[in-house]
Design a protein around this nucleic acid. Structure first.
Lengths: 187, 187
DNA sequence: ATTTTTGTAGAGTGATCAGTCAGTTAATTA
DNA sequence: TAATTAACTGACTGATCACTCTACAAAAAT
């Protein structure tokens, strides 16, 4: 594991627990097992570290989603996989998922370049456009669909995280929620 | 306007723009037009101010929602009103709405007492329980429904805020999204 | 009329923290 | 091997900031 990744990993843990503000760089360095100076060798500022962590986590999520997407042709199936894989990832990486939300509602978001933000929605946007072209979706604005799907994923995640369920119940809930979502936006 | 409200209002403006961290108490006092000491006369600590602002904003939202709820009997209609009024408030008070999210994804949330958090969901929980008792809803877990409705509201809000629409288009979108939501969770 | 409480001010303080710097060690290149 | 660069250290600093303190004015209570 690269040292910069060790630092990012330490930052994630502390940011999620204490927030950006409540986490001094000195604590991050200590948690990562490196000196204060080393942290600033890899990341010029604390803000840069914060943004780098966001990009890193987002890439991780996108990579996890891309796997089955590339192997699947049928649009509706890809849609299902996108939803199911998102939920799966969000539960297995709930700290990372929390950090994404936390970051999203902070002024740090404005430090991320437009291109980077765009790059990160390509997967979703592409699939949605295909679905629209194939006339599979209800005639709703694309941005609205993105928002609704995104928040549906978030809502389900939040519920599943709190409710301690057996794997079978969990799978059942995911399937149901997915079905609800599909009937909501598919024709 | 009470001086404590002036301070809260100043804090809201700055917190939303610069975040908790990026907003020194001195700037809040200056924005509110009071001295540094006065701020701490009304709020013992910055954390207390932060929490007080959250409670204040949430009460405001709940009051806005309660108005039509009390005058309406039919459960489905009350559900519609709750949804429509939430969206309306979130657009008219988008800074307050943003602050709620921001607060939600910060460690400050843990500073709010359980009773206060409970008090703030009573309106929603009550309506939902009535709907369940009247067997109007699909047999889904209450917490899941709450999460789904909440995130649906958030998703629609986010979309409407970005898309600059005419009042008629806006109303249309709200109606459509509401219809989608109703078919999703009502029998 | 006098005491007490409350509201307001703003300079001051101690602690914290992001980021620097001077210097050491390890790795790469010439 | 020598020279150059990169990785790394940790003490240090300048600035910032939450909060205090003393002082005073206005209002309320007695």
């Amino acid at each position: 594991m690269e040292k910069s990744e060790v630092i990012l990993s330490a930052a994630l843990k502390l940011f999620v627990e204490y927030g950006f503000h409540g986490t001094p760089t000195s604590k991050i360095a200590a948690e990562a097992g490196v000196s204060n100076g080393t942290l600033f060798h890899y990341f010029k500022t604390k803000d840069e570290l914060t943004v780098a962590l966001y990009v890193h986590v987002k890439n991780d999520l996108n990579n996890a989603l891309a796997l089955r997407q590339q192997k699947t042709k049928d649009i509706r199936t890809r849609f299902k996989y996108l939803f199911a894989d998102s939920i799966k990832w969000s539960l297995q990486n709930y700290k990372e998922f929390y950090y994404i939300q936390q970051f999203h509602f902070s002024p740090h978001l404005s430090l991320v370049s437009k291109e980077e933000l765009e790059r990160q929605t390509q997967l979703h946007l592409g699939l949605l456009q295909e679905a629209i072209d194939a006339k599979l979706l209800k005639p709703l604005p694309v941005e609205l669909i993105i928002q609704l799907v995104g928040s549906q994923i978030y809502g389900l995640h939040q519920y599943l995280l709190e409710a301690k369920l057996t794997p079978a119940e969990l799978q059942n809930n995911v399937d149901e929620a997915l079905e609800l979502l599909l009937t909501m936006i598919f024709i």
